Simulated scan of single mutants.
Amino acid sequence: MIVQTPDWVKHAVFYQIFPDRFAQAAIPRKKLLSSDRWEQWDLPPSLQGYKGGNLWGVIEQLDYLQDLGINAIYFTPIFQSASNHRYHTHDYYQIDPILGGNPAFEEMLKAAHQRNIKVVLDGVFNHASRGFFQFHDILENGPHSPWLDWFKIEGWPLSAYDGSKPANYVGWAGIRALPQFNHDNPQVREFIMEIAEYWVDFGIDGWRLDVPFEVKTPGFWKEFRERVKAINPEAYIVGEVWGDSREWLDGTQFDGVMNYLFAGPTIAFTAGDRVKMELVEGPSYFPYPPLFAKEYGEKIQALLELYPWEIQLTQLNLLDS
Rank of each mutant, 00 (worst) to 15 (best):
V3W: 09
P6G: 10
P6M: 09
D7W: 09
H11I: 06
V13A: 14
Y15C: 08
P28K: 14
K31V: 10
S35H: 07
S35Y: 07
R37L: 14
P44M: 07
P44H: 08
P44I: 06
Y50R: 14
Y50G: 08
K51L: 07
K51H: 06
G57Q: 13
V58K: 11
I59T: 14
I59D: 10
L68N: 04
G69L: 05
G69F: 04
N71M: 04
Y74N: 10
T76S: 12
P77C: 05
H85F: 06
R86P: 02
D91E: 13
D91N: 15
Y93H: 13
Q94N: 06
D96C: 11
G100F: 08
G101E: 10
A104P: 11
F105S: 09
E107H: 10
A112N: 12
H113W: 12
V119F: 06
D122M: 00
F132M: 05
L139A: 00
G142R: 08
G142C: 07
W147E: 10
F151D: 04
I153A: 03
E154G: 08
D162F: 11
G163W: 11
K165C: 11
K165Q: 15
P166S: 12
A167Q: 01
W172S: 13
G174D: 03
I175D: 14
I175E: 11
R176S: 05
A177T: 13
A177F: 07
L178P: 01
P186T: 00
P186E: 01
V188P: 00
R189D: 00
F191Q: 00
A196H: 01
Y198C: 05
D201N: 09
D205C: 06
D205H: 14
D205E: 09
D205L: 05
L209D: 04
D210T: 08
P212W: 05
F213Q: 13
G219L: 01
F220E: 02
E223H: 04
E223N: 08
R225P: 01
V228H: 06
I231Q: 08
I237H: 01
E240Y: 01
G243C: 10
E247C: 03
V257K: 00
N259W: 00
P265Y: 11
A268V: 12
V275S: 07
K276P: 09
M277A: 12
M277E: 13
P283D: 10
S284P: 11
Y288I: 06
Y288S: 04
F292Y: 15
K294Y: 13
K299V: 05
I300E: 09
Q312S: 06
L313A: 15
Q315K: 02
L316H: 08
L318M: 15
